[in-house]
Design a binder for these strands. Structure first.
Length: 272
DNA sequence: AGTGGCACCTGTGTGC
DNA sequence: TGCACACAGGTGCCAC
């Protein structure tokens, strides 16, 4: 489900419900997610939520007695519910709050993550977060930075921008879309990208992620914000899922190709 | 060290 | 209708 825009839309959807309220209890299912749920998250019970942050596709719920780290994987989503709403299949984690609301994680495929960052530890030193590259909206993520990263790699440019050590938050949809806007063939070797192309690509990654957040993210199958609303960015996609349809620029037929195991969409005429 | 392949898991859609 | 199979928005580990 979620790439960076969907995670950010989720964050914006839960922050007002969480901040300023006390975590009264947690529900922890016995099913294992990507890792077993870190039971130390119980340390946060009885503490007020101070903030909800995002790093890449991870959400961090901050309290004075430690932080809950969440990842939505492929199929996870968070919803704001009234207290004691009936549990559904694949509900794996829930935060019960003093305002009689719950933040509940439902994750069909269980590729998500619930972990814990102790109170005295720098959040960014967590093992999941410390290995991540820059945020796409940060000043650190520039065309020059991207160019230098790409130059060292022989893999495809698409696989490279999806590498969270290069830049966080670019998943399969926005990788195809940003390469389309930049007129770069996704199969092109990363080290063959010019500085000019890297500048274009950097700019379009920032632009497309921002535009998607503004539209509430991309709803393909089941993504919705924490309020259950669908994302409308799917209507703005140029190539993703459009195999066999005409390119919106040149009307050539959009093709698909598998790159590192992921379906990839591009216009063979526009993208060189 | 970098790379491709694969595993993790469930649900859905397609073709026979 | 039932079955087998491919595929899905992510990430990390494993041999090469």
């Amino acid at each position: 489900m979620p790439e960076l825009p969907e995670v950010e839309v989720t964050r914006l959807g839960i922050i007002d419900t969480l901040v300023g309220n006390v975590i009264e209890d947690l529900f922890i299912s016995d099913k294992q997610l990507r890792e077993p749920i870190d039971l130390r998250v119980k340390d946060t019970i009885g503490y007020k939520v101070n903030d909800v942050q995002r790093r890449g596709k991870y959400l961090i719920i901050c309290t004075d007695n430690g932080n809950i780290l969440l990842h939505l994987g492929m199929s996870g989503h968070l919803k704001v519910l009234d207290a004691n709403t009936e549990y559904k299949k694949h509900d794996h984690f829930s935060i019960k709050l003093s305002n009689h609301k719950e933040i509940r994680l439902n994750d069909t495929r269980r590729f998500g993550l619930v972990s814990f960052i102790p109170k005295n530890m720098d959040i960014l030193l967590d093992k999941h977060l410390s290995i991540l590259g820059p945020e796409p909206f940060s000043d650190e993520f520039t065309g020059k930075y991207l160019f230098e990263k790409l130059q060292k790699r022989t893999i495809s440019v698409k696989a490279c921008i999806m590498d969270s050590k290069v830049v966080v938050g670019v998943g399969n949809i926005y990788a195809s879309e940003s390469l389309f806007l930049s007129k770069i063939n996704p199969q092109k070797s990363a080290c063959k990208i010019t500085l000019k192309q890297a500048n274009e690509l950097c700019m379009h990654i920032k632009e497309i992620l921002k535009r998607s957040i503004a539209q509430g993210g991309t709803t393909l199958k089941d993504f919705s914000g924490a309020d259950g609303k669908m994302g409308y960015f799917v209507q703005r996609l140029n190539v993703y899922g459009h195999e066999g349809k005409p390119c919106p620029i040149c009307s050539s037929i959009i093709k698909s190709v598998v790159i590192s195991g992921r379906n990839t969409f591009y216009c063979p005429k526009c993208q060189k």
